[in-house]
């Protein structure tokens, strides 16, 4: 990883990963629309999903520009196949119940907010600009999800037991956030991007504090989960993109 072309290729791959993370978690959140137990939560969830769609658009538009082959944000979102998406596996897992959704948001957004904060200092100006905007949005999402996490964990016996299982189920997926590969290293070394080792320490601290506040305990570290960034998805992913891409594939180029 030394030539200018290699660096640009790594930047493009990185921006696409960010776009894929945002798009796939948005799709899962959109699946929850009309299913929240409270009207106010309904609005919050839909707003947050739209924040992520907005972020995905910014990342994909920028990826199109970096790639310089005329691909639009829609092409990246709707015209690729499963293996070309590089989102974290956590984000594509089925929604489950409300506690599952909250635990997923807490684990991912605790990481994502640190990632974005580091990216605001990137030497790549456009990426830094997008990160400034996205960081504010995600900081608020995390505040919202963290409060629910504590409320559920520290709430009734029933809510505590359920959210403890959610945490146990999703915990292993977090290892993927910190498995640095060549793209991450190039971002760190050539674009003043995040150092995942530093992020991991901070994430451990932040999440441990939240888990303690929620009267829960940290799960034992179990088998590592990896593969999302190589396009190796779980079985749920095919169903997810089938639904997500259905309209665009049935009516190519459709607008409204």
């Amino acid at each position: 990883m030394s030539s200018k072309a290699d660096k640009q290729a790594a930047l493009l791959a990185y921006v696409l990963r960010l776009g894929d993370n945002a798009l796939i978690i948005a799709q899962r959140m959109i699946e929850r629309v009309t299913n929240e137990a409270e009207l106010e939560e309904e609005l919050a969830n839909a707003n947050f999903a739209l924040d992520y769609i907005g972020q995905a658009r910014l990342f994909y538009s920028y990826a199109g520009k970096l790639e310089n082959k005329g691909r639009s944000e829609d092409d990246f979102a709707f015209q690729r196949d499963s293996r070309e998406y590089c989102n974290f596996l956590l984000l594509e897992q089925p929604n489950g119940h409300f506690g599952d959704a909250i635990v997923r948001q807490v684990l991912f957004e605790s990481f994502y907010v640190l990632q974005l904060e580091a990216l605001t200092r990137s030497s790549d100006e456009r990426l830094a600009e997008i990160a400034v905007r996205a960081e504010k949005e995600v900081r608020y999402h995390l505040r919202h999800a963290a409060q629910w996490f504590v409320r559920l964990g520290d709430g009734t016996e029933f809510s505590h037991a359920r959210v403890a299982v959610s945490l146990q189920n999703y915990w292993r997926f977090a290892t993927e956030f910190f498995a640095a590969d060549a793209v991450d290293e190039t971002m760190r070394d050539s674009f003043d991007g995040p150092d995942l080792k530093v992020l991991e320490k901070q994430w451990q601290l932040d999440v441990s504090e939240l888990v303690a506040d929620a009267s829960l305990s940290l799960p034992d570290t179990v088998a590592r989960v990896d593969g999302g960034r190589a396009g190796l998805h779980s079985e749920h992913f095919g169903y997810l993109i089938a639904e997500m891409q259905h309209l665009h594939r049935s009516h190519p180029g459709v607008t409204w």
């Binding site: 409270e38 106010e40 939560e41 609005l43 919050a44 707003n47 505040r143 409060q147």
Partner: peptide, 20 residues
């Protein structure tokens, strides 16, 4: 107006409902 379980949640709900 809105419904919320506690003060903090009320503030969040107000933000999400009325300041979009």
């Amino acid at each position: 107006s809105l419904h919320a379980a506690d003060d903090q949640m009320a503030l969040d709900h107000a933000r999400d409902t009325y300041t979009r």
